[in-house]
Design a protein around this nucleic acid. Structure first.
Length: 300
DNA sequence: ATCCAGGCCTGCA
DNA sequence: TGCAGGCATGGA
């Protein structure tokens, strides 16, 4: 083993699989028992065995404090969950996703990534982001100088890229939004570090001013980059599940569901959201298709 | 072929 | 304020 290349992290109560598979971050891929991904401009291989996570990093480093922080190893999710109402949906989700943690991602990457999520499926999002990084991201080199991956492109790189290049990565209509937001960050008109100091509602308003960012994406950034655990993103899956479990399948709006969740789940609503989201997508999906079948075209 | 995807923006009532 | 249609692109 090269010095600084592999590390052992004690992580009792942590479930790496559900955490990385739950659609918070889009640069992780399961590789047998391992997870392979890029974070902090390093290629990282992670494997959990019982209460320990092994991390292999390229380039090597002795400082894994930032990785602990990214994974939120010390996050007291158990205590947060205890504070949630123990109703049927929460109980099922918490059991199904035991050990799921909320990551703490770099704000620019998180914002840019979720800008690309609208009206797309997760595998497609992953593919697009991979393309974007390969096209515009800084190369990651191993000790022999070979390129083994790419970091996430900084705002400057995206702001300077022609829309045509972004489109080539598969961004579609989101290309213009991403370029505009990148320019705002690059110029300093949007200071993502400063959002950390604002209260959640003020930060949310700032995010909502951005082109292509609405309530759902803003809440994702608040939750996954700034760890504002009260933020409750309402996507199509959350909407379906919440309608069924709390509204008797009535077609309530996303805004109504969000208001309801804020009141019911309180300061850890976002944690509840991620558990419900992953549970719904993995365990509940077939039942949902049954409960709300796709509309068939009516023949005339 | 048609619908939908971790939505958002615009235009119209 | 609320809602339908449009937006690029690809998978089911």
């Amino acid at each position: 083993m090269n010095a600084g290349r592999t590390h052992e992290i004690s992580a009792p109560g942590y479930n790496l699989d559900v955490t990385l598979a739950s659609g918070q971050a889009f640069r992780w891929f399961r590789c047998g028992r391992d997870w392979l991904g890029v974070a902090g401009n390093r290629l990282i291989r992670l494997r959990q065995v019982q209460d320990h996570i092994t991390a292999e990093l390229i380039p090597a480093t002795h400082d894994i404090g930032w990785l602990r922080r990214y994974l939120q190893i010390d996050q007291p999710v158990h205590d947060m969950i205890e504070s949630l109402p123990a109703d049927d949906l929460i109980a099922r989700a918490v059991t199904h996703c035991a050990g799921l943690h909320i990551l703490k991602q770099e704000p620019w990457e998180c914002l840019a990534s979720f800008l690309l999520t609208s009206a797309r499926q997760i595998p497609q999002i992953q593919k697009t982001i991979s393309e974007l990084c390969r096209e515009l991201g800084p190369p990651i080199k191993d000790e022999r100088g070979d390129t083994v991956g790419h970091g996430f492109p900084p705002p400057t790189a995206v702001a300077d890229a022609p829309v045509r290049v972004l489109r080539r990565c598969g961004l579609g209509f989101r290309a213009v939004f991403l370029k505009q937001v990148a320019a705002l960050v690059d110029s300093g008109k949007l200071d993502l570090a400063k959002l950390e100091r604002l209260d959640t509602e003020a930060a949310r308003q700032k995010l909502l001013e951005l082109p292509g960012v609405g309530p759902k994406i803003a809440d994702c950034v608040l939750l996954f980059a700034y760890n504002r655990y009260e933020a409750f993103p309402v996507d199509t899956w959350i909407l379906k599940a919440m309608r069924i479990y709390y509204f008797g399948s009535k077609p309530v709006s996303a805004a109504q569901v969000r208001e309801f969740a804020q009141a019911r789940f309180g300061r850890f609503a976002g944690v509840a959201q991620q558990y419900i989201y992953h549970y719904t997508r993995t365990a509940l999906r077939p039942q949902l298709d049954l409960a709300m079948p796709r509309r068939r075209r009516v023949r005339t």
